[in-house]
Design a binder for these strands. Structure first.
Lengths: 229, 229
DNA sequence: CGCCCTAAGTCATCTGAGGACTTATCCTCG
DNA sequence: CGAGGATAAGTCCTCAGATGACTTAGGGCG
């Protein structure tokens, strides 16, 4: 087997076998090199691979540690790659977001959290008052993120967050011919979601969330905007 | 900025800016080192990071290339990290699978594909006839994978596949006290899914798929089996 | 008792060298 | 003339050694 692959397999094995649990520290690099039978270069390249995937974490001057192995954290690592996916692929991803977020929004509606509803309403007030693309994106993210969090599954929140972040690189909300129409439709969509949550109607919440995101998909398909990263 | 991070940013930028598209080749390592102002070690570590995420691909003796940047391929890279997630996290992931697979199964039911239905029935015949854990796992994967593929969104297929692969490392189907009961329940669940698809009933298909995966979640919670990787 | 300083431990980076694999080219042979 | 293999150039892979940078713990000083 190639040296780097051997190192990679060895490191993974140490975690998979349970020898090292979340947060625990690996032996120093020279010792790992001896144990795995590879050079430091190869070991470090293998470690970088796992670090990129969020499995381990190297701290300069301190050591190399197993990460928390939390699904949400690991999924958030995907943003590095997801942000490079071209438009065609983003549309596939948006279907995933639509389905997951509809589910999470329904779960949020099933909760009876008055505080959440007030916070969401406040966000929408500010969102409707601004036309700044950056603020729109930030407030939109905050709105959806809060709802997903209320949905109760951090993995879903992370996954939808990564996908939303990718979509955000496309300039939908730029001053242009359709800006006002798009913004108003978006604002109405958000209000519909909030109304369903406030009405404790999970089915309506799922529908509203699904429709809202489907609308985004339509805009992306129609406008095919140029990404800015 | 740290050298490796600088190299990482530089490589990503070359893709994000559109200078290099899917399948295209990077300049040789020495030239990239000059251009990015880092040593070969740092450049290679950065490249390994991106390779782990499925963004680039190094071919020994040939060169380094931008990957296809296909969402399904990128997501399949996650199996390397997902397979190390402990049971607690797997349960969160299974909820994602449940929601997505219900969606895909409904979409598959909306199609009218007699050939698919015959293939699925054949798989279930073989699945019901075996008690070998490895075969059960393989046939189960084939069954669900075919349905997800018919659902039409490769990203969903890849994502559910990664999660299913993780769950498969837990020995649910091992000879034991509950083996027969579990196997029969699982077989009935598969038949219910197939019946809904054959009946072209998307709502029933979604329900059947959801119930089937929810059952798996219950078993994992109850049995808390020991993983084998 | 607290603060600073020191030293040991560890990861980060650079340099230079040789090996291994792929690919294209050219030459030989049929 | 075509096909096959030998050759050479291009490229990534691995190793080794040395130095720098950062973290942490412990001791000394005020």
């Amino acid at each position: 087997m190639a040296a780097t692959d051997k190192a990679l397999a060895g490191l993974r094995q140490m975690i998979a076998s349970g020898a090292l649990g979340p947060g625990e520290k690996f032996p120093p690099e020279p010792e790992l090199c001896d144990r795995l039978g590879v050079s430091r270069s190869s070991l470090r390249e293998a470690a970088r691979s796992l670090a990129a995937l969020g499995v381990i974490e190297s701290r300069h001057g301190s050591g190399t540690y197993v990460s928390a192995l939390d699904p949400a954290e690991i999924i958030s690592r995907f943003s590095l790659s997801v942000e490079l996916i071209p438009l065609e692929g983003v549309l596939e991803l948006l279907e995933v977001r639509r389905v997951l977020e509809a589910h999470a929004t329904a779960a949020a509606a099933a909760r009876q959290d008055v505080e959440l509803e007030k916070t969401l309403a406040d966000i929408l007030d500010r969102l409707e008052a601004t036309t700044d693309a950056g603020q729109i994106q930030a407030l939109d993210a905050e709105f959806h993120n809060l709802i997903c969090t209320a949905g109760g599954n951090p993995t879903v929140t992370a996954l939808t967050g990564v996908i939303r972040g990718r979509g955000g690189h496309y300039r939908i909300f730029e001053p242009g011919a359709d800006f006002d129409a798009i913004k108003q439709t978006s604002d109405r969509g958000h209000r519909a979601i909030l109304a369903a949550i406030a009405g404790r109607d999970p089915a309506a919440a799922a529908t509203a969330a699904s429709a809202h995101i489907a609308q985004t998909e339509l805009w992306l398909r129609a406008l095919r905007p140029v990404p800015q990263i």
